[in-house]
Design a protein around this nucleic acid. Sequence first.
DNA 1: AAAACGGGGAC
DNA 2: GTCCCAGTTTT
Length: 347
Amino acid sequence: MNFSAELIAWYTDNKRDLPWRNTTDAYIIWLSEIILQQTRVEQGMPYFYRFAERYPTVTAFAAAHEDDILKLWQGLGYYSRGRNMLKTAQLVQQQYNGVFPVSYHQLIKLKGIGEYTAAAISSFSANEARAVVDGNVYRVLARYFGIDEPINSPKGKKTFQKIADDVLDNARPALHNQAIMEFGAMLCKPKNPACGICPVRMDCIAFKTNATTCLPVKLKTVKIRKRYFNYMLISDGEKILMNKRNEGDIWANMYDLPLVETPELMDIVELLQLPQMKNLGSNIALKDNSAIIKHVLTHQQLYIRFLILKDFPKELQENWFYADIENLKNLALPKPIFIFIKYFFNF
DNA sequence: AAAACGGGGAC
DNA sequence: GTCCCAGTTTT
C-alpha cells in the first residue's frame, strides 16, 4: 500500500463519528469548516449544532442579521468568521440562487474561504481532487517526508501544498483528505504522537531519525502587545450604558461597555483625573474597585478593570446607547465582558 | 513577508 | 508558561 492507502485504511478503522461527515450538503460542510478554522473539534461541535439547527439552509442564514450571527458565535473567537459568513451567505443567495457552490474555483472567491476551506468543501461535497493542507497535514507531511522547511513561511506553504497534491489519491480525494487530517489529529499529534501504533512508522523519516519532536518547524513571530482597558459599568438596575465596538480592532461590531483605554496601568486615583473620565459625568462615585483581570489573546494581553459608576453621563458618545438589562442576553459580548456582566447581575 | 484576529485545552 | 487547534484577511 502507498502512503495514502495506509492512511485511508487506518482512517476506516479509527475515525470518529462526526456530524458533518454524514452529509455532502455543501452548505453544512461550509458551516462546519468555517467553525473549525483554528478551532478544536470539541470546542466547535456545540456551535455547529446550534448553527445547523437555527439556520438549516444558506437561505435561512442569508436572512439573518449580523447581530444574531455574532450572538450565536459568542465565545468561539475570531468573529470575522461569522461576519464573513453572512456576506458569503447573502452572495450565495443572490448570485447562486441559494445553491451553495461546490467547485474550488467558485469557492475560493468567497469571503472567509481560503485555499484550505475551498479544497475541503469541494472535495467533501463534490469529490473534487483538491488536497487540503491544514495544521494536521503540515505535521504529518513534515514528519513522514522529513521536511524541515518552516510551515508558516510563504515558501514553505507552497512546498507543503505541492507534496500534499502529490500524495493525494485522485480517485477518492474526500476520503484521503478526511483520513490525513484525522490521522494528524488522533495519532500523529503535536505532543506525544502514537508512533508505537503508527502504520507508516517504518517509512517515516522523522520516526527513523528520531526527529518527531523537531517537526514540523515553525517560525515564531508573535509580538504581544499589552493593553489596559478601564470599563465603566453604569446602570440604574433597569438599564445599562453599552457601547458598540468599531471595526478595525478586536471584537469588531460586538458590544461592550464605555471604555477608557490607557497606555499603561494607572493608579485608580490618577485614572479618575483623566479628561475622558471627567466627561463621563460630574459626580463619578466609585462603588467598587474590582480586581484587574488578565485576558490573553493571540497578539494582545488585555488588563481589564471594571469601574462601577453611580450616575449616567449627561452626554453620550457616538457608539453609546442604553440597553435594557433584560435585553443583554441578545447582545454579542466578548468573553471577559460576558463573564463580568453575568457575575454582576447574577444571571 | 508579516501582523492581526479569540478562546480554550494539553502538557 | 508554551504550543497549537479542520486558516483567512489585511497591511
